[in-house]
C-alpha cells in the first residue's frame, strides 16, 4: 500500500468509528422517548410485568389515550398553554423591540443607559429570588393572581430584559442610521420610521426571540404554578404534574399523559427543526 492509500483507509476507518459512536449516542438520547411510546400502547398490567416488551401480552391498546385526555382535561390545558404562549411571545416581541429602539437611538440619554444597564444586570437574578415577593405583592396586595392575563404580563416582564438585549444588538449592528434619517426627511415620524423601516428589518432577531421565548413560556412550570391555582386555567406542565400526583400508580395513563404533553412541541419541531436549531444557536451565542 502506498502512503496515500494508507491514509485513505485510516480516514475511512475513523469515519466508521465516528458514525458508530454517533448512532449509539443517538439511541441513548431517544431511548426514553421510545420507551414511552412503546408503553403507551399497553395496558397497566403489561407495563408492570415487562416495560421493555414491544407489545404487551394483552396486545395493542389505545384505551390509555381517551382516559388520560379526559382526566387531565387535555384540550382545555392545551388551549390555555397556547393562549398564554402566543400572547406572551407576541407582546414580548413588540414591547422589547420598541424599548430597544429608543435605547439604541438615544444612547446619550441618561434614562436609556440606566434602564439598559439595569436590564443587563437583572439577567443574572434567578427566579427563586423573585418568587416570594412576587406572590406577596400580586397575591397579597393587589390580589390579581389566578388569571391568565397576569401570567402573560409576568412572562413578558421576565423576558423583556433578555429580548431587549438581543434587539439592542441587532439594531445597533445591522440597521444603518442613514435609512432612518432618510425616512425622517421623507416625512415619517419616529413612530412610523420604527414600524415601517426598522421593525421589518429585524426579522431574523424576531425569529430567534420567538423561538427562545415561546419554548420557555410553553415549558415553564414554577411561575405558572405560583400564579395559576384554579384548575380551569392550568397549563400543560402544571396539569402533567397534578395528573402524576393523582394517578401515578396507573402507569398506562401516565405514559399517555406524558406523550400528550410532549406531542405538540415534537410535532412542531418536526416541521420547523431547521429554524429552531438555528434560532436557539444564534440566541445562545449572542446571549
Amino acid at each position: 500500500m502506498t502512503q496515500n492509500e494508507k491514509a485513505a483507509a485510516a480516514k475511512k476507518r475513523n469515519h466508521a468509528i465516528m458514525i458508530t459512536i454517533l448512532i449509539i449516542l443517538f439511541i441513548l438520547f431517544i431511548m426514553p422517548f421510545i420507551l414511552v411510546i412503546i408503553n403507551v400502547f399497553k395496558d397497566k398490567a403489561d407495563i408492570v410485568s415487562n416495560p421493555l416488551a414491544l407489545i404487551g401480552a394483552h396486545g395493542f391498546t389505545l384505551k390509555n389515550f381517551p382516559e388520560a385526555m379526559r382526566k387531565m382535561d387535555f384540550f382545555n390545558v392545551f388551549k390555555n398553554s397556547l393562549i398564554i404562549t402566543v400572547s406572551a411571545t407576541f407582546l414580548t416581541i413588540l414591547i422589547s423591540s420598541m424599548t430597544s429602539f429608543v435605547i439604541v437611538r438615544n444612547g446619550k440619554w441618561k434614562m436609556c443607559t440606566a434602564v439598559f444597564a439595569l436590564m443587563v444586570a437583572s439577567m443574572v437574578i434567578p427566579f427563586q429570588v423573585l418568587m416570594v415577593p412576587l406572590v406577596s405583592v400580586y397575591g397579597g396586595i393587589f390580589n390579581i393572581l389566578n388569571s391568565r392575563i397576569t401570567l402573560i404580563f409576568m412572562h413578558v416582564g421576565f423576558s423583556v430584559s433578555m429580548a431587549t438585549f438581543m434587539f439592542h444588538g441587532a439594531i445597533h449592528s445591522t440597521i444603518p442610521l442613514e435609512l432612518e434619517e432618510a425616512a425622517l426627511i421623507d416625512g415619517c415620524t419616529r413612530w412610523q420610521t420604527f414600524w415601517k423601516i426598522v421593525f421589518p428589518l429585524l426579522k431574523p432577531t424576531i425569529a430567534t426571540v420567538t423561538i427562545i421565548d415561546a419554548m420557555a413560556f410553553w415549558n415553564d412550570y414554577l411561575l405558572p404554578s405560583l400564579v395559576l391555582t384554579r384548575k380551569e386555567i392550568y397549563t400543560i406542565p402544571i396539569a402533567t404534574q397534578q395528573f402524576y400526583g393523582t394517578y401515578s400508580t396507573d402507569i398506562g395513563l401516565v405514559m399517555a399523559a406524558l406523550l400528550l404533553a410532549m406531542l405538540p412541541i415534537l410535532i412542531l419541531y418536526l416541521f420547523l427543526q431547521k429554524y429552531i436549531v438555528a434560532g436557539v444557536t444564534s440566541g445562545a451565542v449572542k446571549g
Binding site: F26, I30, M215, N219, P237, T240, A261, M262, L266, V280
Partner: peptide, 11 residues
C-alpha cells in the same frame, strides 16, 4: 441531540 431541550423539566 437537541430534542431533550424541547421538553420541559417536569415532563
Amino acid at each position: 441531540f437537541f430534542v431533550p431541550n424541547l421538553i420541559g423539566g417536569i415532563v
